[in-house]
Structures are given as C-alpha cells and as structure tokens.
Design a protein around this nucleic acid. Structure first.
Lengths: 124, 124
DNA sequence: GCTTGACCTCAAGTTGACTTGAGGTCGTAG
DNA sequence: CTACGACCTCAAGTCAACTTGAGGTCAAGC
C-alpha cells in the first residue's frame, strides 16, 4: 500500500521479460492497470508481474488479449463459463495437435522422397 | 495427364473449403502450383486438393506458409530435419497447452471470486 | 552546465495471411 | 443482345500485437 512498493514500468518489463513498449501497450488497452502516476510516469502494483506472466502464458495457449481482458476483468461469476468454453476449445486444439504430431512422426519415418508425394501427408 | 482432369480454381476452393482468394494467394506465393493456364485461367492437378488440406492442417499446428513451402519443396533434401525440429517444437507446445489446460481446470474449480486474485492463476 | 537514462506521447510502420474493390475478359443461357 | 457467373490482375485494406521513431520532460551524476 506504500507508494514505495510500486514498480516503474522498466521493472515490470525486466522481471517479466517483456519489452517496455509491450507493457505500455498492455496498460493502454487495459489488460493491466497502472495504479498511479508519479510525475507522469506509470507505477505498477507488484501483482502486475504475476498478471503479465498469466497474460503471456494465456497467449501461448491461444487466448487473444481481448479474451484475456474479459477473463481478468470479470469480477462477477461470468468468467467461469468463459473458462469452461476455452477449456473445451483447448482440448480440441490439443487433439488436433496430437494428430499433427503423429502424422509428422509418420512422415519423418516413412522413407518417401518428398512430403508432397507421401501418402501419409496427402490424403486421397 | 489429360487436360480434362485439371481443376479450375473454384473447384479446388469448393472441395477444400478454402476461399478462392486464398487459393489464388497460395498459388501466388508458390505453396501450390497451377499446372497450366487455359485462356489465362489457372488449372490445378487434382493432387492440389490434398496439398491444400495438408497446408491447412499444418497451419493449425503452427507452421507458417513459409515453413510449409520449404517442407513441400521436393528439391529440398533437408525437409526431414525441418520436420524433426518442428516435432520437437510441437511437443513443447503440447506440454504448455496441457499445463494451461490443467491450470484452467483448477481455476474453474477453485472457488475464487476473480481470476485476477486466484493464486492458481497468479504465481507468487 | 551538460549529458545520460528512464520515462512520456502520438503517429506511423511491421508481419502474416488473407480479403476486398475496381475494372476487365470469356462463354454460355435466355 | 444482354446478363450472368467464373475467372483474371493489381492495388489497397484488414487484424492483432506490437515496435519504431520523433520529439519532449525530468532527476542524477560528472
């Protein structure tokens, strides 16, 4: 709660491994929030670090910043349904990923000269 | 080998579920190749249909069109190594996806009021 | 007193994968 | 004859998620 605890943007960037410009962008679009301005400069709650890494992991899993904002903003119960939906989507994505992994492994081991002529890659 | 067997662009589009403009684009960037022009109009080998679905599936798995072109380019002997690399990448992606799925499932079941304050989502 | 570094804003540029729009050619059907 | 649908080219627009650039403030250190 002490103003001394708040982090400058460079610190958030450094400790999350994200570019300063990206942190600024996140603030701009409201997916994180600077809790104060000191002499025009943003100051962030230390929680922001965890929040930013959550954002990053979520992006990797295929969430858009828009979806992430909705999930993080939702203080009412609505987010649980959203998470539920996303879970189903991710499961499907994983299934497709598995299929692709299996196909690629077959292709790798197939002995064909080119992928383009490999029946394992090209369905009838 | 008969010219009669070659498909017009609309047919390729229809039977792959891809927009005509996208097929044209694929041809333009050389990820597929029109085997002929009849009166200025593209004609495609029926193989193209399989090739386009391979492209689509690969995109879903995270390949860029550039990577796909390299993999499909028969004259390039190195595709097996590329596929190998991509396999490793995809496995890692799946692991991260799994981690995210587990985290989301925990979040869904956690009883927290908001994701932003849930310790399961926000690492210390 | 001057430079350096961290920060600021606002506008514009970037990338990938397309889509859209304008304007034109064919061949066939009514 | 005219309209239609399928095709063509080329240029420009779109979207997300940023980055880059220009131009400026402010405090600290030499």
């Amino acid at each position: 709660m002490n103003a001394v605890d708040l982090l400058p943007i460079g610190e958030v960037a450094r400790s999350t491994g994200v570019a300063v410009s990206a942190v600024r962008y996140y603030d701009e679009i409201g997916v994180i929030n600077a809790s104060a301005r000191v002499g025009g400069k943003r100051r962030f709650d230390p929680d922001t670090v965890g929040r930013v890494s959550f954002i990053r992991r979520s992006q990797e899993a295929g969430f858009s910043l828009d979806e992430i904002r909705t999930i993080l903003d939702e203080t009412q119960g609505g987010w649980r349904g959203l998470v539920e939906d996303k879970l189903a989507e991710l499961s499907e994505r994983r299934d497709r990923l598995d299929t692709m992994i299996n196909m690629l492994a077959e292709i790798r081991d197939c002995g064909c000269e080119a992928v383009a002529s490999c029946p394992r890659a090209m369905p009838a």
